[in-house]
């Protein structure tokens, strides 16, 4: 089975370098090469060795970070922040890519606004070995809820031009299935939760993904660590799914006893007698 590792955010790795390196070695042991990563544009300080050593699948755009920037600077300020973080050498390529979107951007199109963010964030990481572009689930699921179908072909065409494999990440596979059937759109790559506990598996019967099994990546396979990874992967194999994300959280999880002890210590520290 083709497996994908996860490069957690800088904040999640802070103070855990040794643990993260053990996770990478563990992935190596399983033959996992590609890392899934959510770039943090314009933050700086990203340690490159982990990124430069492996093929990457990048989730674009980083919508939670964008939403936080919008609160501080407004939508134009958030876009400007990403633009100013790029090297000026990237501007011609960016201008070329964005030219076709100009009318849409001027009329404040949602789909083309998302694509501008995707391109801006991609320009910041384009020198790395990025092979897949995964459209952020909030963009996909919001477009599905509102029926903003133009985002889907726009993203696929953009990825193809960049030589990337396009993947749509959704937490609402049932809604995606009915929507793409209605629109006559056949996605080239999909990612969605699949697990025995049906955690985050929304409105999708087990048979729904079979039609896309060859081009799908399973997410949340161990249902938050409640299904042993081996068992979870075996179940995917039986269902014909050939690719899965091995989440960082599934590596060396603390025991229930250890976690309760940590809470107890914290309360003793914070609540003085």
């Amino acid at each position: 089975m083709d497996l994908l590792g996860e490069l957690p955010s800088e904040a999640r790795r802070r103070g855990r370098t040794a643990e993260f390196e053990r996770y990478l070695a563990w992935l190596d042991g399983m033959g996992v090469n590609t890392l899934l990563w959510v770039p943090e544009p314009a933050k700086g300080g990203e340690p490159r060795p982990w990124l430069e050593s492996r093929p990457l699948a990048a989730i674009l755009p980083n919508l939670p970070l964008y939403a936080r920037d919008v609160m501080d600077r407004g939508p134009a300020g958030a876009v400007l922040k990403r633009l100013l973080a790029l090297s000026p050498f990237k501007f011609p390529s960016l201008a070329g890519a964005s030219l076709g979107w100009t009318p849409g951007l001027l009329s404040r199109s949602f789909a083309q606004g998302i694509m501008l963010l995707v391109e801006l964030e991609y320009q910041g990481i384009s020198r790395l070995d990025v092979r897949e572009a995964v459209l952020h689930s909030s963009a996909v699921d919001m477009a599905l809820a509102f029926g903003a179908k133009e985002l889907f072909p726009l993203f696929e065409r953009w990825a193809e031009r960049r030589g990337l494999k396009p993947v749509f990440l959704t937490y609402n596979l049932g809604l995606l299935t009915s929507s793409v059937d209605r629109w006559g759109f056949d996605p080239r790559g999909l990612a969605f939760p699949v697990n025995e506990k049906r955690y985050h598996v929304r409105a999708a019967s087990d048979g729904t993904w079979l039609r896309w099994s060859g081009r799908s990546t399973a997410w949340e396979v161990d249902a938050g660590g409640t299904v042993p990874l081996e068992q979870a992967l075996e179940s995917l194999r039986e269902q014909g799914l050939g690719r899965a994300l091995v989440p960082y959280g599934s590596f060396e999880p603390a025991s229930t006893k250890e976690r309760l002890t940590a809470f107890k210590d914290r309360l003793a520290r914070d609540l003085k007698p």
């Binding site: 909030s138 937490y171 609402n172 697990n195 506990k197 049906r198 955690y199 929304r202 249902a223 006893k257």
Partner: peptide, 19 residues
């Protein structure tokens, strides 16, 4: 000790998850 994970408590076939 016992652990009850969200995955076991949130058994929903329907609904909508945006984030």
């Amino acid at each position: 000790t016992h652990r009850l994970h969200r995955g076991e408590l949130e058994k929903e076939a329907d609904g909508f998850e945006l984030a």
